[in-house]
Design a protein around this nucleic acid. Structure first.
Lengths: 338, 338
DNA sequence: TCACTATGGACAAACGTTTGCTCAAGCAAT
DNA sequence: ATTGCTTGAGCAAACGTTTGTCCATAGTGA
């Protein structure tokens, strides 16, 4: 019907070279035996005609679409934004296209929805923070998949960042700077990353022989709203430093400290993890452990495509969860020595 | 080869109903005349068998893939992140899938790249801030397209937000609060949005009979790095308020003011546009004109799909650039009355 | 009753590939 | 000289749809 420009087909090349389409196809795939002479002739005409193949036809024939889907919860979270970029870069470099779908988390069956309207070979799932629901979704499809940004017990294909280690690094920095009473402004406890970060804080505190009781942790989730109360709670127990679960809550904590006329970092230091522009536009600029969020997306895509293709580049079947180490601590102005 | 579960085909339904595949196809499309009896019988078996059609086969036959591509520069910019979501929501509701591709801006031919590996019916372009390059890219393909986040002279399918009006609204608020000497912390002048915002500031100032000379505008681009110097420049000419081009530069400006021991908003008020979490985690929380960034993505997708389908829902051929009005001014703490 | 038109549905071609099979040469071995 | 193997390439089927064409059957008017 509405033929796009790119409508030079195998048949056209065949006609132009006086050779059968099947031969062309084989040459283009480097499959089967073809004389050197015909091969170059074909390659030349294909090039000259601007032949590029029809991905849809190929997909129909081979049942491989070279397309993967990434389902994200709220893309606004900068960590997912970078993860998408990372995934897209990796996917593209492997000849795959990346479909992105937004999951409002309202229980819609995104995946079957999508795989109904478009053929995908696999899916990267970053949404569904309800483990049970995620398992259920995963079970409802037999698509290759990888779970992003957390580890799901019972699943072998999860890619996450070692936020426990990142937390430890941040807290250890605080300790090295002489802090002894360090509060943990927790994310969502009970969730993978929330728990990991708390454990990291705990480990660092324990290793230094410091108090890490419950009164030193205040949960604030991931939105700014609960931060003020949590900060107040920490202030009440006399912390000299706060380890915030996320950059956003760190910023909110700093804002609260200003509000309470507590000077940062002179009276209270703040450290967190994840580095982006935000860390440089709050005052004082925040000391933070950079996280490989783009790399996480890249690795997830790599694993997914390995899974789809059945092997890793080195020939072995990929398996096991991945935990990416954090990048380094970036020292800015929100922490001071005691 | 590797048949996914969803392999119940038209033929299967045909076999189960004892009717030809063509009839099934017509029933499923509501095309052609089919007796009520066969129709329901077909519908039932299709349902029972879980038939959902093969999008690839359909795409091959009809030359319509129901897939569009969105090319983004840096997705980290929250405005693009929301735009992607908006576009995805609209696309999905119209039965389209959204492919996302990241353009590092290194001159790679993303579009031909992608349309080579996957068939797309149209593209939303948010990258290429070089107008000439964009025009060239657009010319190199005859795909339906819409340009996002700016207007490109000579193109009829651009969707942007009226940042000029947003700027005016912000500045007018400042004026209403009694400010007279208001500096403009500009984005990138020479670019669509940078110019628009400056004009908005100018218009508001002019309308109030206030000074809007060049010494009152300081360019800072969109990254925090150039902000301190620009703020210093504005401080030097004695402004009591700053209108920042973006939320990020507003935050950076506030940070600089703190650094210079200038109290916000008591000594200098700050207003900007775009609302997201960031506006609530800096101290003081920033007064800002909310921008319909998700809506922009939605509208872009709508226009693109209208273009692809040749008509708008009401039957007329879509045409003309779109300029979305800003949402409302959100009053927070960064502005005070003089 | 006969020709004629709706109606409902079957047939088959086509979309652009991939791939198993077949087959003609060419060549070496018997 | 006949057989047998290798090499190169063509033939045709298939992937799962959509759609133009054709053909029965039934219903209409005369």
């Amino acid at each position: 019907m509405n033929n796009r420009n790119s409508s030079v087909t195998l048949r056209d090349v065949a006609a132009a070279t006086g050779v059968d389409v099947s031969t062309i196809s084989r040459v283009l795939q480097n499959k089967g035996r073809v004389s050197e002479e015909t091969r170059t002739r074909i390659l030349e005409t294909a090039e000259r005609l601007g032949y590029h193949g029809n991905p849809v036809a190929r997909a129909l024939k081979t049942a491989k679409s070279s397309t993967v889907l990434m389902v994200v919860p709220q893309i606004e979270n900068p960590i997912f934004a970078s993860a998408i970029i990372g995934a897209e870069i990796e996917a593209r470099s492997r000849g795959f296209a990346l479909l992105v779908s937004y999951d409002k988390g309202d229980g819609r069956e995104i995946i079957s929805d999508i795989s109904r309207s478009s053929i995908i070979e696999g899916v990267i799932i970053a949404s569904f923070d309800d483990d049970d629901r995620l398992r259920q979704v995963l079970k409802s499809t037999d698509l290759p998949h990888v779970v992003l940004n957390r580890h799901l017990s019972g699943d072998e294909n999860c890619v996450a960042i070692d936020t426990r280690l990142a937390a430890r690094m941040g807290v250890e920095h605080l300790i090295a700077m002489g802090h002894r009473r360090i509060g943990h402004l927790a994310g969502r406890l009970g969730r993978f990353n929330g728990d990991m970060r708390r454990r990291g804080w705990e480990e660092a505190m324990a290793a230094a022989g410091l108090d890490h009781g419950d009164d030193l942790v205040a949960q604030a989730g991931y939105s700014p709203d609960e931060v003020p109360a949590a900060v107040d709670k920490l202030l009440a127990v006399g912390v000299t430093a706060i380890h915030a679960a996320t950059l956003l809550t760190a910023a909110a904590a700093i804002a609260r400290l200003h509000e309470r006329d507590v000077r940062v970092p002179e009276e209270v230091s703040v450290v967190t993890m994840h580095d982006d522009l935000l860390a440089r536009v709050v005052y004082p600029q925040v000391t933070t452990v950079a996280l490989p969020s783009q790399e996480m997306g890249r690795v997830a895509a790599r694993r997914l495509i390995d899974l789809i293709q059945g092997v890793t580049p080195d020939g072995t079947q990929p398996t096991g969860n991945l935990l990416l180490p954090p990048d380094e601590l970036i020292v800015r102005a929100s922490v001071t020595a005691l």
